[in-house]
Design a binder for these strands. Structure first.
Lengths: 130, 130
DNA sequence: AAAATAAAGCAACAATGTTGCGATTGTGTA
DNA sequence: TACACAATCGCAACATTGTTGCTTTATTTT
């Protein structure tokens, strides 16, 4: 079985996620890393972190892809069924851990994962009178 | 004020949407068009159709972007608040027009648009014993 | 310390989306 | 119906994002 290693780049990326309150794109991570490692390495680390359920992927309405730390909290089985909020002004994506949609599905569909993204104005931008 | 025109390429693309039961990516449209027009033209037509609220954009969990016809039905104000289903087997995206999530938002957020995408197995793939 | 192998770096490539500009073509109006 | 003019198109060039193969580096285990 594959063992995962702790490398400087991985540690650096985890620290960036730890510090950030919002989801980050590959590009944003790269800027914050300041050439700690190669662009490709970032992709590979993100892949590994997703496999290990440490981060999750979020795709915005516009097709932008971002990543955020998973909040494992209490659940034994880890499902990313919380909502995300995408601000159309500052483009920040935040996890709304407590917002869970309820819905009724037609028969014959097997739902395994859900992605619930709301967009509009975040509190910060709403208050700055746009 | 800008007037929009009906060009052969736009008509062809609209017909493709009309015939398709699932959402289509730029690439899928291009294949079906069989060199009716340039790749760039497709992008521009899709942009126009979105501005005119004739189609809407859907971004999948994996970051894939697709487009589908809007169903204007009864609502006066057109909001894309229906759900989409993305099949992890056949990769087709279908609009679930009647599935509308209910949710409770924290204060201070102004929600303008929502994107609710479920993924798993569609009826077609569920029945073919995977 | 050496062996085993996960991870990094580099280069090259693929897919997707954007921009500028000159040429073409729909369409309202004369 | 013909004209004028703006909307649209095609092309080339570029930007961004993501992937792959292969060699080298470095972490971990023995």
């Amino acid at each position: 079985m594959k063992t995962t290693r702790n490398t400087p780049a991985k540690t650096a990326i985890l620290e960036i996620f730890e510090k950030s309150k919002t989801a980050l794109s590959h590009t944003e991570i790269q800027k914050q890393l300041n050439d700690v490692c190669d662009r490709v390495t970032i992709y590979r680390i993100l892949d590994r972190l997703m496999n290990d359920d440490i981060i999750h992927k979020i795709s915005n309405l516009d097709g932008t892809v971002k990543y955020a730390k998973c909040n494992h909290s209490h659940q034994r089985v880890h499902i990313h069924n919380h909502a995300h909020f995408s601000c159309e002004n500052c483009n920040e994506i935040t996890c709304l851990e407590n917002v869970k949609p309820s819905y009724i599905m037609p028969h014959n569909y097997k739902v395994k994962e859900i992605n619930f993204t709301l967009s509009g104005l975040c509190p910060k931008c709403l208050n700055s009178d746009i």
